[in-house]
Design a protein around this nucleic acid. Sequence first.
DNA 1: AGATCTATCGTTAGAAT
DNA 2: TATTCTAACGATAGATC
Lengths: 180, 180
Amino acid sequence: MDNNKKTKGRQRIDTSKRREREEDRLVTFSKRRTGLYKKGSELCTLCGTQLGILVFSPSGKPFSFGHPNIEVIARRVLEINPRSNENSDGVMDAYHMNRINKLNEKLTIVSDEGEDEKERGMKLAQMAKVRQNKFLCEPKIDELNDYDLPNMKDWLLELHGKINNHLEELIDSQVVGTYN
Amino acid sequence: MDNNKKTKGRQRIDTSKRREREEDRLVTFSKRRTGLYKKGSELCTLCGTQLGILVFSPSGKPFSFGHPNIEVIARRVLEINPRSNENSDGVMDAYHMNRINKLNEKLTIVSDEGEDEKERGMKLAQMAKVRQNKFLCEPKIDELNDYDLPNMKDWLLELHGKINNHLEELIDSQVVGTYN
DNA sequence: AGATCTATCGTTAGAAT
DNA sequence: TATTCTAACGATAGATC
């Protein structure tokens, strides 16, 4: 019989079950997260849309992906609707911004002068072939029959709480020493 | 020559370019969004993790997907850390919750007694084969070397602003009449 | 931990419904 | 406009480095 084959190739796995072996879970997570980002990136490129993905690793570490570059989106929103920072959400955003600014100081130190952030950004940019300019998405959302909205709202609240908890822990546990 | 083939099969497309034909863009968006959700769902099932995806359609309509059921996650977070509603983020959350509650009233009417929310939920549950019980993810996030965090923070802020803008528009434009 | 290789499995373009 | 069908394309399990 012909056993010249170098590998067994891709084998079928049961996608309705959790992978039992710790090692398999980690490898699968790493590979499939990359694949998911690629799919998301392609969807955005092909259809000219915006997208965000947040996923927690098996160890609980959060990963996120935005297309196009998340900072570009954020800046665009502020340019288009500068009052959103002070107007309807004035109280909340003032509080939030202040809080975020303080957290940023810590995070800048933790992430070693933002070196890693830069690295990651370049990696994603390369992978997704993101073009920073020429962004064609509608600036306003005016569709009204939006069945997903209540769900998204809950999701945002949940995410927000999680992020804040994580950031709180970063500060409270004084972990800066772990780096450098 | 053999022309028995029923279709030409999948053809290669340039994933680094926006699809030019409006119709192609819509069909591609619909198909690939489904595929993306499936990939996300599988990633979560295989690795026992949590995930959220937010994507805007070509027409600007937001779609979101959470695994497992987003409400289950939200409830778990509140159970595990009940003080997160009143403690460190007391001011913001009180304001936010009040606001959300008011918005919820409107949305309940808009979405026709939540009929659509239910429909959508069942559809997703079926697709993803979500098992509501037996959820094994860690309750706490204690990893500290998190390079993605600043990025995620920006993303959350951006999303949050967008959602709020959308909700504001829903209320301000008094669109309830479009339904029923 | 992440990159690479290969054979196979799963996704999807185009067409029709 | 979303789903179905088929064949071709792309993603990835397992192994290795």
